[in-house]
């Protein structure tokens, strides 16, 4: 571990999200998609964000990028990237931030690249957007980036088009593009989901290595606990638009506190241990328009008591504050009775 990965050693976090709420006005009323989400990511730190589909993982990432699909809007809270507040910026100011302060990697490398431009054209375009290099310097830098992400024969490959690359190679190109503006934060939204299992490990290893090297913070959005375990430093678990547990990866994986996190861990098959049936969490995550009162998880929770149906649990901080580590469960906050 390098110095930059130690939260206490770096000054300004790459990402600081406080009390972020996102809502969607619809004909039937306002849906709250994210509710008081808080999360910090230090430079060089990889924070995994996990949860079921619709828990708000990607929504959090898109909010940070300023790419919420209308009519979605940030209704409360603050987002700071490298100390600069970005949630209140207009579209043109945000375009200036994207790529330069925050990069992105999306799920499907097959569709992330424009098929009609060579990868060199796309890299050079991005590099020149974010620095005053001339065309030749930008091209040299592009080749350098391709080498960094492990594309063999980068000098030649730079003139190739996306369809001439395999899926894993394309995701490497996407990573190079995300790094092209030298951002201090990267939002990686399911970066390995569309790849073969054998390629997944290479890509996550590459991502980790490059982020350590460049001191880039990463928000790794995924539903794959394996990827989190291999890659992330800390993990945030989301449920129904809220962060319900945050902590160091080892801690959360081996000693999950929140009943939901425990359920998630129990549903991962372990090598070597034969079980009759994998544990599962009964029921489904509530829809946005039918989130139960109190704790959103209470109808599915094995530990729930009467208080869970009335009081919405707040994040109970552990260590350095709610955004660093903690759990939002009444079991740890006055009991369920």
């Amino acid at each position: 571990m390098t110095v930059a990965t130690h939260p206490s050693m770096s000054d300004v976090p790459a990402l600081d999200v406080r009390g972020l709420s996102v809502e969607f006005p619809t004909r039937k009323g306002v849906l709250t998609a994210l509710s008081e989400v808080s999360l910090t990511i230090q430079r060089g730190e990889i924070v995994g964000v996990v949860g079921e589909s619709g828990a708000g993982k990607s929504m959090t990432g898109m909010s940070v990028l300023g790419l919420l699909e209308p009519p979605g809007r940030i209704s409360a809270g603050e987002i700071r990237i490298g100390g600069k507040r970005t949630d209140n910026l207009g579209e043109s100011e945000m375009a200036h931030i994207r790529g330069r302060m925050v990069g992105a990697i999306f799920q499907d490398p097959l569709t992330s690249l424009n098929p009609l431009f060579s990868i060199g054209q796309q890299l050079i375009e991005t590099i020149r957007l974010h620095s005053d290099r001339n065309r030749a310097e930008a091209k040299a830098h592009a080749i350098d980036l391709l080498k960094q992400v492990g594309i063999p024969g980068a000098d030649e490959r730079i003139d190739h088009y996306p369809h001439q690359f395999s899926g894993g190679m394309r995701q490497r190109v996407v990573i190079a593009l995300a790094l092209a503006g030298n951002p201090q934060l990267i939002i990686a939204d399911e970066p390995t989901t569309a790849l073969d299992v054998s390629i997944q490990a290479q890509i996550t290893a590459l991502l980790r290595e490059l982020c350590r090297e460049h001191g880039t913070g990463v928000m790794l959005v995924t539903h794959d606990m394996g990827v989190i375990a291999e890659t992330a430093d800390r993990v945030a678990v989301m449920y129904a638009g809220r962060v319900i547990e945050v902590g160091p990866v080892d801690e959360v994986l081996s000693r999950p506190k929140h009943p939901y996190t425990r359920g998630l861990m129990g549903s991962i098959p372990a090598l070597g241990a034969r079980v009759e049936r994998l544990a599962q969490i009964d029921g489904a995550m509530p829809r946005l328009n039918a989130i139960p009162s109190g704790c959103a998880f209470n109808p599915r929770c094995l530990d729930a008591g009467p208080r869970c149906r009335q009081v919405r649990p707040a994040m109970v901080a552990e260590g350095k504050g709610a955004a660093e580590g903690g759990v939002a469960c009444l079991v740890y906050d006055g009991g369920v009775q």
Partner: peptide, 15 residues
């Protein structure tokens, strides 16, 4: 609506 347009926006390409 294509992904590569969203990705282009994410890398800072102007309107």
């Amino acid at each position: 609506r294509a992904d590569f347009i969203k990705f282009a926006r994410a890398r800072g390409v102007k309107h």
